[in-house]
Design a binder for these strands. Structure first.
Length: 923
RNA sequence: GGGGGCUUAGCUCAGUUGGUUAGAGCGCAUCCUUGACAUGGAUGAGGUCGCAGAUUCGAAUUCUGUAGCUCCCACCA
C-alpha cells in the first residue's frame, strides 16, 4: 500500500503476495504432533482440464477451511493433485491425432499412442494447478500427486489384487452399458437417462400356425433395428388372451425364422398389446428373459454401433439409427407395420461419448462392493457427517440398491489391469482359479514371455477411490509417511459437489473401510473410525447460469474464471461466488451478481486508506500493544457499540465454521464492515478525529483493533487483500504473514474489551433517531443539506443522551444544530417521533401543513394498529402465563414505545390542524 | 414408480430451537460529486411468506392435505 490509489487494483497485489507465500513456504504441511491436525484432499481435477466455475467454488471453499484452520493454530495439509481422467483424456488425444495426422490409435499401436497421451499430459497437464494458484489456493504444491504416478499406480494395483484375492473382483460375461462412440464399457453411473421424442412402432409377427381368427401377434417396439436379433416373443404366462399360444411359434420377418412364443412374468399385460419381442443380445431385461428360457443370443449390432452380418446382407454395415428407419420401412413394405406413434421414452446416454449407449453383452471385470454395511454404519453412526445433513439420505439410499461395478474399460490410458493370461490358452478355456492359467499380481509373472496381460484398464474412479490414503503413502508408507498417516488420517473434511457422491465419495468410503488395515470381515465402530477416509463431507451445489442451465462449452455460458479474476480480482471472485452460494442447492451465476466482491474489496481498501489518512500509525504489531493504546475512560457510546459488534461477528463466524454453515459467512462480514463499521462507526469517528489528540488516538486505536480483527476474520475468503492491508497497517511481525497470527476467540475478545451494554443500547436508539431525522429532511428535499436547524423534545434521561451525543447526531444526520425546545413553541413544525425524542424541523420558509398532517395521519394509523396488537397481546392471560419473561418484557417495551409515539403523533396532528385553521382564518 | 429439495419484495436468496414492526444484495425512484470510497453516500417505493385446514396465547417457522416447479434413483417393450 505504498502508493495510495483511490481504487483497489488487485492484480499486482495478488500476484505479489501469492509469490511471496510460495517462496516463504507458507502452505507447507508439517505433521506437528503439538498441534491439532487438519487435512483436506483436493478432489483431483482432470489433469488436462481447465479451470471452470465449479472448480472456483469447490476450491475457494476448501481454501477458506484450511486458511481458517491455520489461523486456529492447526497443522494443515491441503493435498493437491490431478486425475488422469481415462475416457476424457484419451478421446481428446485421439481426436487431435485424427485431425493432425489422420491416424487412429490403432495405427499407432498401444505403446506409441500412450506416448502421445503422455506428451499431451506433459504439455497441458498441470495448467489447472497453476490456475488454482491464481485463485489463491493454498495447497502444499510440492505434494501434488497424479493418479498415474508410480507410487499411486502401485496403490491402485495393490487395491485391485487385494480385492481380487478377497473375492470382490471377478470377470464375467454380462450385459453392460456400451458406448459405441468411445467403444468401451461404462458403469451404470456413467449413463444418464434423457427423455427422447421417439416413435413407437407397432408391428405384427405372423403366427406360424394361425389360431382360429388370429393370424398374428401385434408387438410394439421403439427399436425395430433389433428385430433381426429377436429370438422369441414373450407374453405373460397368466394372460388369458395368449396363454394357450405359449409353446407355439411366430415368424420373425427378417431374417425370416421361426421363433418361439414364451411365457414370462416380466411381461406387463397392461402395456400395449401385452406381447413383447425378446432381443437377448441387445436389451438388459431381454437378456435375463433369454437366460431363463435358454434363448439364442443373436448379436446384430457391432461394437462400433453399426449393424453386422447377422443382421442380414441388407443391413450389414449400416449405422444403427439408419438401420432403424430402414427396418421400419421394410416392415411397411412387407405390410407388417401397423402404426407409427409419437412416443416419449428415456434413453441412456453415454456421459462422455454423448451418444445413446448400447446394452451389449461382453466380458468385463466387476467389483462387488465391499463393506457396504460398514459404509452405511459409518454415516448412520455419525462417524462421517454430511453437511448439509440431508445428503446422507441420498448416500444411504444409493447404497441400498447398488449392483456390482463394471471397473474395466476398453481404453489404453489408465491403470492396466494386473492380470495375465497364459499364452496358448483360449479365453474360454481359462480357469480363473488355476494360477497356471491366470496370474494376478502387482509385479506380474516371472516369465512374462509366456503370458499376455489383460488389455483393459481400470475405470478412473477405480483409482481415485484411494485418493486420501494413497496420497499419504498407503499401502507401503515409509517411516515419514507413516507419521503423516498417523497424524492426518482420517482426513478432516471432503469438499465436493453432490454430483459425485456415488462416483467418488461412497466408493472412497467403501474402499478405505476394506483396505485400510488388516483384512477383516466385520468392522467395529472403533475400527470404522480408524479407516474412514474423512470425517466430514461438505457438499455444495453446482454452478449454473442465471437461467438455471448447466454450464457448458456448447452453450457458451461458461465464463473463464481467469477473465473474472482479471475483472474482479481473485478475492473479489472468491467473495462473490461464496456470497451467492446458498447452502447446498444450485447456484445461479451471473457476472452482475459477483460484482459485490470487487466492490467490497474496494470498500475495504478505502476504509483502510482513510485510516491511514486520519492520523499517525502507532504500534500495531500485536493485539496487546493495541489494547494498551485504548483508554477506556475516553470511550463513548459508539466505541462500546462497535466493539460489541466486533465480538458478535467473531462469535457468529466461530459457530458458523463449527457447524459448516458457511453460506452466511460473506453476508456477516459484509454487513459488519460496510454498515456497522464504515457507515456508522467511521462516520461517527470523524468528529472525534478532529477533537483532542487523546480522543483521536483512542479512536484510532479502536479502528486499528477493529480492522485487525476484521482482516483476520475475512482473510480465509479474501486472502490477498487482507495480507496487503495487514502488512500495510503494521500488524505483521517481521517476516510473518497474516495467517500465522492466531485468531482471538470471541470469548477472549469480550473479556479484554468488555463493551458496555447500555452504551450499545443507546447507539441503537441514536441510529433510529438519526435515520428518522434524515428521513424527515428528505421529505422536505433537504437530504443533502447539512445546515438544517432541528429542535427536539425528550424525557429527562433521554435528553442527557442527546446532549452527550450532540456532535454525533449533527454530523451523521446533517443538522446545523439540534436543541431542546418547548413543545408549545414547536407546534406547527414538521416532526418525527423516535423512541428517544421527537424531532422538529425548522422550516423558515412556507410549509404545506395539510400534506404534513396527512403524512402524520398515515403514521398514526400504523401506530394505532401496533398499539392495539400490543394491548391485545398483553391483555391475553394465556400469553402472560405461557410466554417467557423475556418475550413479555419485549412486548411491554414495544407497547410503551408505540403508545408514546402514537400520543406524540396525535398531538402533532392536532397542532397542525390548529395551525392550519389559524392560517386560513388569517388569509 | 421411489426418494430429496424448493415455493418469502421485480430478480437472486436469508430467516437458527415457534416470540418484538419478516430481512439482505441487486434492480427501481428521488436527492447528493461534502476532504476514504460514484466499485460511493442518503432516503424511499415494493411482501396478506404457493393454497386450504389443524395445533398454539402466538405460525414464514410445527403438523395434515393440496397445487406448481426442480433434482436424484429406477424404468415398460
Amino acid at each position: 500500500m505504498s502508493e495510495i490509489s483511490k481504487a483497489y487494483e488487485p492484480e499486482a497485489v495478488e500476484n505479489r503476495w501469492y509469490a511471496e507465500w510460495l517462496s516463504a513456504g507458507c502452505f507447507k504441511a508439517v505433521a506437528d504432533p503439538k498441534r491439532q491436525p487438519y487435512a483436506i484432499m483436493i478432489p483431483p481435477p482432470n489433469v488436462t482440464g481447465r479451470l471452470h466455475m465449479g472448480h472456483v467454488l469447490d476450491n475457494t471453499l476448501q481454501d477458506i477451511f484450511v486458511r481458517r484452520a491455520r489461523q486456529e493454530g492447526k497443522a494443515v495439509l491441503w493435498q493437491p493433485g490431478t486425475d488422469h481422467a481415462g475416457i476424457a483424456t484419451q478421446t481428446k488425444v485421439e481426436k487431435q491425432l485424427l485431425e493432425s495426422t489422420g491416424q487412429s490409435k490403432h495405427d499407432l499401436g498401444r505403446e506409441a499412442f500412450l506416448e502421445k497421451v503422455w506428451d499431451f499430459k506433459q504439455a497441458s497437464g498441470g495448467v489447472i494447478l497453476q490456475q488454482l494458484q491464481k485463485l489463491g489456493a493454498s495447497c502444499d504444491w510440492d505434494r501434488a500427486s497424479f493418479t498415474l504416478d508410480e507410487d499411486y499406480s502401485k496403490a491402485v494395483l495393490t487395491a485391485f489384487v487385494r480385492f481380487y484375492q478377497r473375492g470382490y473382483i471377478y470377470r464375467g460375461k454380462r450385459m453392460v452399458n456400451w458406448c459405441p462412440a468411445t467403444q468401451t464399457a461404462l458403469s451404470d453411473e456413467e449413463v444418464t437417462m434423457r427423455a427422447q421424442n421417439g416413435i413407437l412402432y407397432k408391428m405384427r409377427y405372423e403366427l406360424v400356425e394361425p389360431d382360429g381368427e388370429r393370424t398374428h401377434l401385434e408387438i410394439s417396439t421403439t427399436r425395430p433395428e433389433t428385430l433381426m436379433g429377436d429370438s422369441a416373443v414373450a407374453v405373460h404366462p397368466e394372460d388369458a388372451r395368449y396363454q394357450h399360444l405359449i409353446g407355439q411359434t411366430v415368424w420373425r420377418p427378417f431374417p425370416r425364422e421361426e421363433i418361439p412364443i414364451i411365457g414370462d412374468s416380466y411381461v406387463d399385460r397392461e402395456f400395449g398389446t401385452g406381447c413383447l419381442k425378446v432381443t437377448p443380445a441387445h436389451d438388459k431385461n431381454d437378456f435375463e428373459i433369454g437366460q431363463r428360457h435358454d434363448l439364442k443370443l443373436i448379436e446384430v449390432i457391432g461394437a462400433d454401433g453399426y449393424m453386422n452380418e447377422q443382421a442380414g446382407e441388407e443391413f450389414a454395415g449400416v449405422e444403427r439409427f439408419e438401420a432403424r428407419k430402414r427396418a421400419a420401412k421394410k416392415l411397411e413394405t412387407m405390410g407388417l407395420l401397423v402404426a407409427r406413434e409419437a412416443y416419449e421414452n428415456n434413453v441412456g446416454y453415454s456421459e462422455r461419448g454423448h451418444v445413446p449407449i448400447e446394452p451389449r453383452l461382453s466380458e468385463q471385470w466387476f467389483l462387488k462392493y465391499p463393506k457396504v454395511a460398514a459404509a452405511k454404519r459409518a454415516v448412520e453412526s455419525g462417524a462421517i457427517r454430511f453437511y448439509p445433513d440431508r445428503w446422507k439420505k441420498t448416500y444411504l439410499h444409493w447404497l441400498d440398491g447398488i449392483q456390482d461395478w463394471c471397473i474395466s474399460r476398453q481404453l489404453w490410458w489408465g491403470h492396466r489391469i494386473p492380470v495375465w493370461y497364459k499364452k496358448g490358452l483360449a479365453r474360454s478355456e481359462l480357469d480363473f482359479d488355476n494360477p497356471k492359467h491366470v496370474h494376478v499380481s502387482i509385479e506380474g509373472p516371472n516369465d512374462p514371455e509366456n503370458w499376455e496381460q489383460e488389455s483393459d484398464v481400470l475405470d478412473t474412479w477405480a483409482s481415485s477411490y484411494l485418493w486420501p490414503m494413497a496420497n499419504l503413502g498407503w499401502p507401503h508408507p515409509n517411516p515419514e509417511q507413516q507419521k503423516e498417516l498417523d497424524f492426518w488420517y482420517p482426513t478432516t473434511t471432503l469438499v465436493t459437489g453432490f454430483d459425485i457422491i456415488f462416483f467418488w465419495v461412497a466408493r472412497m468410503i467403501m474402499a478405505s473401510l476394506e483396505l485400510y488395515g488388516e483384512d477383516q470381515e466385520v468392522l467395529s465402530d472403533a475400527e470404522i473410525a480408524k479407516r474412514l477416509p474423512f470425517k466430514n463431507i461438505f457438499i455444495h451445489g453446482l454452478i449454473r447460469d442465471e437461467k438455471g442451465r448447466k454450464m457448458s462449452k456448447s452453450l457458451g455460458n461458461s465464463p473463464d474464471p481467469l477473465d473474472l479474476i482479471q475483472k474482479f480480482g481473485a478475492d473479489g471472485l472468491r467473495f462473490g461466488i461464496c456470497n451467492i452460494a446458498p447452502s447446498g442447492s444450485d447456484i445461479l451465476f451471473s457476472e452482475e451478481r459477483i460484482q459485490i466482491g470487487r466492490n467490497f474489496c474496494n470498500k475495504l481498501w478505502n476504509a483502510v486508506r482513510f485510516r491511514q489518512m486520519s492520523g499517525p500509525m502507532s504500534d500495531n504489531s500485536d493485539l496487546a500493544s493495541i489494547l494498551q493504546r485504548l483508554d477506556r475512560t475516553l470511550f463513548d457510546d459508539p466505541d462500546h457499540w462497535i466493539l460489541q459488534r466486533l465480538c458478535d461477528l467473531t462469535q457468529s463466524l466461530e459457530s458458523g465454521f463449527q457447524d459448516y454453515e458457511i453460506a452466511p459467512l460473506t453476508h456477516r462480514l459484509y454487513a459488519f464492515f460496510w454498515s456497522d463499521f464504515c457507515d456508522w462507526y467511521v462516520e461517527a469517528s470523524k468528529a472525534k478525529l478532529q477533537a483532542s489528540e487523546a480522543l483521536r488516538d483512542n479512536c484510532l486505536a479502536i479502528q486499528d483493533l477493529v480492522i485487525r480483527q476484521f482482516l483476520q476474520l475475512a482473510h480465509p475468503v479474501m486472502p490477498h487483500i487482507t495480507e496487503e492491508l495487514w502488512q500495510a497497517l503494521g500488524y505483521a511481525q517481521p517476516q510473518t504473514y497474516i495467517h500465522q497470527a492466531l485468531l482471538s476467540p470471541a470469548q477472549e475478545l469480550i473479556q479484554s474489551l468488555r463493551p458496555d451494554a447500555s452504551a450499545v443500547e443507546r447507539v441503537a436508539q441514536l441510529q433510529t433517531l438519526i435515520t428518522q431525522g434524515r428521513a424527515l429532511k428528505a421529505q422536505y428535499r433537504l437530504a443533502s443539506k447539512r445546515d438544517v436547524v432541528v429542535y427536539y423534545t425528550a424525557e429527562a434521561p433521554d435528553q442527557v443522551t442527546l446532549e452527550h451525543n450532540q456532535a454525533l447526531i449533527n454530523r451523521l444526520a446533517g443538522f446545523k444544530s439540534c436543541t431542546a425546545l418547548d413543545p408549545k413553541v414547536a407546534s406547527g413544525m414538521p416532526a418525527t417521533v423516535t423512541p428517544l425524542a421527537t424531532l422538529y424541523l425548522d422550516l423558515s420558509s412556507s410549509l404545506d401543513l395539510a400534506a404534513e398532517s396527512a403524512r402524520l395521519t398515515k403514521d398514526l394509523a400504523k401506530l394505532e394498529q401496533q398499539v392495539s396488537i400490543g394491548e391485545k397481546k398483553l391483555g391475553n392471560e394465556k400469553f402472560m402465563k405461557s410466554a417467557p419473561e423475556k418475550v413479555v418484557a419485549g412486548a411491554r417495551k414495544q407497547l410503551a414505545e408505540a403508545r408514546a409515539k402514537r400520543d406524540e403523533t396525535k398531538r402533532l396532528i392536532e397542532s397542525f390542524q390548529q395551525n392550519s385553521a389559524s392560517l386560513k382564518s388569517e388569509s
